[in-house]
Amino acid sequence: MIESRFIELMAKHMGKSATPEEIKELEEFFIHFPEYRKMQNFTDVLTTEEKQSDTLMTKDLDQNLDKIWKEIKREESIVAPVEEAKIRPLSFLKWAAAVLLMGILAAVFFLAQKPDPLDRLALSGMQNIYVPFGKIRELQLPDGTRVKLNAGSSFSYPKVFSTKNRLVTLKGEGFFEVARDANRPFLVHTDKVMIKVLGTAFNVKAYSTDKKIEATLLSGKIQVGLNDKPEKNIVMKPNEKLTLINKGAATEYELEELPDLHKDEVAEIAWLSNKLVFTNERFDEVSTQIERRFDVKIVFENEALKKERISGVFKDESLEQALSFIKMTTSFKYRRDGGVIFLSLR
């Protein structure tokens, strides 16, 4: 009798359908019959086995994600999805109507496609790359251009560049060393800006989760166009940094010259050598970079903490080390819960 009641209570407790009274009853069971704790003790440490193939899978997850995004882009490029109709004999008039309708649909499809060159490219062999948090990826494009992509960036380019230009899309941060080809400008398309290049080395930071977009030019010449103001073009010279701040509808921009520094010391491209460099930056901006670098999520439990200013250089430090360095100058405490770091005032 006692047994079956105990099993019932355990099952209810596990299946989250126990009432508060029943939970209390179960606790009393444990007090009166300490033996019964063994059962809970055993089920607590029981887990399903990770097969070897499952752990290897982690690498393939990103491959799977690439496939998924390709499929999504394909689905979204199909304009009016025609409902699958059951095949059934049609009278002549219905056939005629159907042919006409198909003609109209096709016209709508092509008209809708035409104005946007990106969509047409997307239909013909695009390569999509997503760089997971905590990683940096380097690749060479078909024209010889070298691109280094920072954590959390999505990048796509055609397998074969067109004869008129070399168009790529970037959401995130990338360092480009563009192969020279005066006849085919290299175009980097981001959410807010379009960058036109002839042959040069530059860095673009345009994460959709950041408020700011930054372009830093190291050599050569680039032209930056704002997507919402096509008539406005900003020409950048070497060692200049362009910052765009998203303020609701309007985009403000600021062009500044970088101090004459050795290439290794430019904060904007420090990530290339796996360094994080902060010079008097707000804590919340610093935290998004830490999130990408260490693949964690940072939660501020106090708003005030976000406004603290942080300076420092991190290279091979672990996340814990980096946080304890920041703690030396800024008073806060943190606790870690899996992949989430909670920051609060001390």
């Binding site: 099993i7 099952a11 209810k12 059962m39």
Partner: peptide, 29 residues
């Protein structure tokens, strides 16, 4: 998941899910 949710996902009745869970626990017991 709760018993209810498992039942919903697998298209079984709450009772069946609860009974299956009890079978597992009973065996251990």
């Amino acid at each position: 998941f709760s018993c209810k949710e498992v039942a919903c996902i697998l298209g079984l009745s709450d009772k069946t899910v609860f009974a299956q869970l009890s079978i597992a626990l009973k065996k251990l017991h």
